[in-house]
Lab assay of single mutants.
Amino acid sequence: GLEHMADEEKLPPGWEKRMSRSSGRVYYFNHITNASQWERPSG
């Protein structure tokens, strides 16, 4: 619920959580730099 939404908002600017269609794993994508990574971004 609300706790999940608050957790999402802690991601650094530009980052969003996405799911890989090929593997079904969650990864993180930065739409500003077009960077993507499996680890949760910090800072």
Rank of each mutant, 00 (worst) to 15 (best):
E8P: 09
K17W: 03
D7K: 07
V26S: 05
K17T: 06
E39W: 09
L11K: 09
A6F: 11
E3I: 12
N34F: 10
Y28N: 00
W15Q: 00
E16D: 03
K10Q: 14
R40I: 08
I32G: 04
S22T: 14
G43A: 13
W15G: 00
H4K: 10
R18Y: 05
L11P: 15
P13G: 05
E16F: 05
F29A: 02
H4M: 13
S36Q: 09
M19E: 07
K17N: 02
P41R: 01
H4A: 12
R25A: 05
E3Y: 03
Q37S: 07
P41N: 02
N30H: 05
Y28I: 00
R18A: 03
E39R: 07
G14I: 01
A35L: 13
M19H: 10
E9G: 08
P12S: 02
S22V: 14
P41S: 01
L11V: 06
D7Q: 10
Q37N: 02
P41I: 02
K17Q: 09
N34L: 13
T33I: 04
K17Y: 04
G14N: 06
H31P: 07
L11I: 04
M19I: 15
M19V: 15
G14E: 04
D7L: 09
E8W: 03
S36W: 15
L11H: 01
W15R: 01
T33S: 06
D7M: 09
N30F: 03
Y28H: 00
I32H: 10
A35V: 15
L11D: 15
E39M: 07
P12A: 03
L11A: 01
K17E: 06
S23T: 14
S23V: 05
H4P: 14
P12Q: 02
V26I: 11
E9M: 08
E3S: 12
A35M: 14
G43H: 10
W38I: 06
G24E: 04
W38E: 05
G1Q: 13
E9P: 08
P12L: 03
G14F: 06
E39Y: 08
E39N: 08
G14H: 08
P41C: 01
S42L: 09
M19R: 14
S42G: 11
E3A: 13
E3W: 03
R21P: 15
H31I: 15
H31K: 12
Y28S: 00
R18M: 06
M5P: 10
M5E: 13
Y28L: 00
M19A: 06
L11C: 03
E9H: 07
L2K: 12
L2E: 11
H4E: 13
Y27V: 02
G1E: 13
M5S: 12
S22M: 09
D7R: 07
S36H: 10
S36Y: 14
A35P: 01
S23L: 10
W38M: 05
L2P: 12
Y28Q: 00
P13H: 09
Y28M: 00
W38K: 04
K10R: 12
N34V: 03
N30L: 02
L2S: 14
N30P: 00
H31T: 15
E3Q: 12
P13M: 08
M19C: 15
E16Y: 05
R21D: 11
S36F: 15
S42V: 12
R40G: 01
L11R: 01
Y27T: 01
Y27P: 00
P13T: 07
M5F: 11
D7Y: 07
G14T: 01
Y27S: 02
P13W: 11
Y27R: 01
K10M: 11
W38T: 05
G24W: 03
Q37C: 06
P41L: 02
V26M: 06
R25F: 04
E8L: 07
E16I: 09
L2F: 13
E39V: 07
W38L: 07
A6I: 11
E39S: 06
K17M: 12
M5Q: 12
K10Y: 11
G14W: 05
R21G: 11
P13R: 07
H31W: 15
N34S: 08
S42T: 15
P13D: 08
H31Q: 09
G1Y: 12
G24T: 04
P12I: 01
S42F: 10
Q37P: 00
E9Y: 08
W38N: 04
K10P: 15
S23D: 10
N34C: 15
G1V: 13
A6Y: 11
Y27G: 00
K10H: 11
Y27Q: 01
